[in-house]
Amino acid sequence: MATVKFKYKGEEKEVDISKIKKVWRVGKMISFTYDEGGGKTGRGAVSEKDAPKELLQMLEKQ
């Protein structure tokens, strides 16, 4: 499965596409929420050019 690499609050993070719950576009950025486990929801964003094609496909399906 594909992963998304991004920075959040200065920390490098990587999340599996299957854990992503919601995806939306903000200008040229793709924002998303994902399941961190333990009932927590994380947030992240990547630029449109750095987003994996699976993430862009999720955006188109909504």
Score class of each variant (00 low, 15 high):
8 Y>D: 15
17 I>N: 01
19 K>Q: 14
28 K>M: 09
28 K>C: 15
33 T>C: 15
17 I>F: 04
33 T>N: 11
51 A>H: 02
61 K>I: 13
28 K>G: 14
59 L>T: 12
46 V>Y: 01
7 K>T: 12
37 G>D: 05
48 E>M: 04
21 K>F: 13
56 L>F: 07
35 D>I: 06
27 G>R: 05
14 E>S: 11
26 V>L: 04
5 K>W: 01
34 Y>R: 00
4 V>M: 01
31 S>D: 10
12 E>R: 04
38 G>H: 09
58 M>N: 05
56 L>Y: 06
7 K>R: 07
21 K>P: 02
28 K>R: 12
15 V>W: 00
9 K>T: 01
16 D>W: 06
2 A>K: 05
32 F>Q: 00
26 V>D: 05
47 S>Y: 08
7 K>W: 11
43 R>W: 11
20 I>E: 00
42 G>M: 04
30 I>A: 03
49 K>L: 12
5 K>P: 01
11 E>D: 04
16 D>T: 09
57 Q>C: 15
55 L>N: 00
41 T>C: 15
56 L>E: 11
1 M>Y: 10
22 K>P: 01
12 E>W: 12
8 Y>T: 04
7 K>G: 07
8 Y>W: 08
31 S>R: 06
34 Y>Q: 00
14 E>T: 08
1 M>I: 08
9 K>D: 14
24 W>F: 07
25 R>S: 13
5 K>C: 02
2 A>P: 11
33 T>W: 12
10 G>H: 03
21 K>I: 10
16 D>E: 10
4 V>Q: 00
41 T>V: 14
15 V>C: 04
36 E>W: 05
54 E>V: 04
39 G>T: 09
47 S>R: 14
57 Q>V: 06
5 K>H: 04
39 G>W: 04
12 E>M: 06
42 G>C: 07
23 V>F: 05
14 E>D: 03
35 D>V: 12
60 E>I: 12
8 Y>H: 14
14 E>M: 05
61 K>R: 05
49 K>Q: 09
62 Q>S: 13
60 E>A: 14
54 E>K: 04
32 F>M: 03
28 K>F: 05
54 E>Q: 07
35 D>S: 09
1 M>P: 13
56 L>C: 15
51 A>S: 14
28 K>D: 08
59 L>S: 12
6 F>A: 03
23 V>C: 11
39 G>D: 15
21 K>E: 12
41 T>G: 08
42 G>P: 05
14 E>K: 03
21 K>Y: 15
19 K>R: 07
1 M>V: 09
42 G>A: 10
45 A>W: 03
42 G>H: 10
41 T>S: 12
32 F>G: 01
22 K>C: 15
47 S>A: 10
8 Y>G: 02
28 K>T: 10
57 Q>H: 13
8 Y>P: 03
44 G>L: 01
58 M>K: 05
47 S>W: 10
44 G>I: 02
53 K>H: 11
19 K>H: 15
10 G>E: 05
11 E>K: 04
22 K>T: 12
48 E>H: 05
23 V>E: 01
55 L>K: 00
27 G>N: 11
43 R>D: 07
17 I>H: 02
62 Q>T: 10
24 W>R: 08
34 Y>T: 01
35 D>A: 06
48 E>C: 14
24 W>S: 07
49 K>T: 11
6 F>G: 01
3 T>V: 08
57 Q>G: 09
54 E>C: 10
9 K>M: 15
18 S>N: 11
11 E>Y: 04
46 V>Q: 02
15 V>L: 03
32 F>E: 00
55 L>E: 00
42 G>F: 08
7 K>H: 10
56 L>M: 08
43 R>E: 14
13 K>T: 03
11 E>N: 05
57 Q>P: 07
3 T>A: 06
18 S>W: 09
33 T>I: 12
21 K>M: 12
40 K>N: 12
44 G>K: 00
29 M>G: 15
50 D>L: 14
38 G>E: 11
53 K>Q: 14
24 W>Y: 03
26 V>H: 11
51 A>Q: 04
22 K>H: 15
15 V>S: 02
39 G>P: 07
34 Y>F: 05
49 K>A: 13
2 A>G: 11
30 I>T: 03
33 T>G: 05
20 I>P: 00
19 K>S: 08
57 Q>Y: 12
28 K>S: 09
52 P>D: 03
13 K>C: 03
7 K>Q: 13
26 V>T: 14
35 D>E: 14
60 E>Y: 05
51 A>E: 02
21 K>R: 08
36 E>C: 09
47 S>E: 06
58 M>R: 09
1 M>Q: 12
52 P>H: 05
17 I>S: 03
26 V>P: 05
48 E>W: 04
38 G>N: 06
30 I>H: 01
44 G>A: 08
19 K>M: 14
4 V>D: 00
5 K>A: 02
26 V>R: 06
50 D>K: 11
41 T>R: 11
16 D>R: 06
16 D>N: 15
27 G>I: 05
33 T>E: 13
22 K>L: 14
34 Y>C: 01
22 K>A: 15
18 S>G: 08
8 Y>E: 10
62 Q>W: 03
6 F>D: 01
21 K>H: 13
36 E>D: 08
36 E>G: 09
35 D>H: 06
29 M>I: 05
58 M>L: 13
41 T>Q: 10
55 L>F: 07
60 E>G: 08
24 W>D: 15
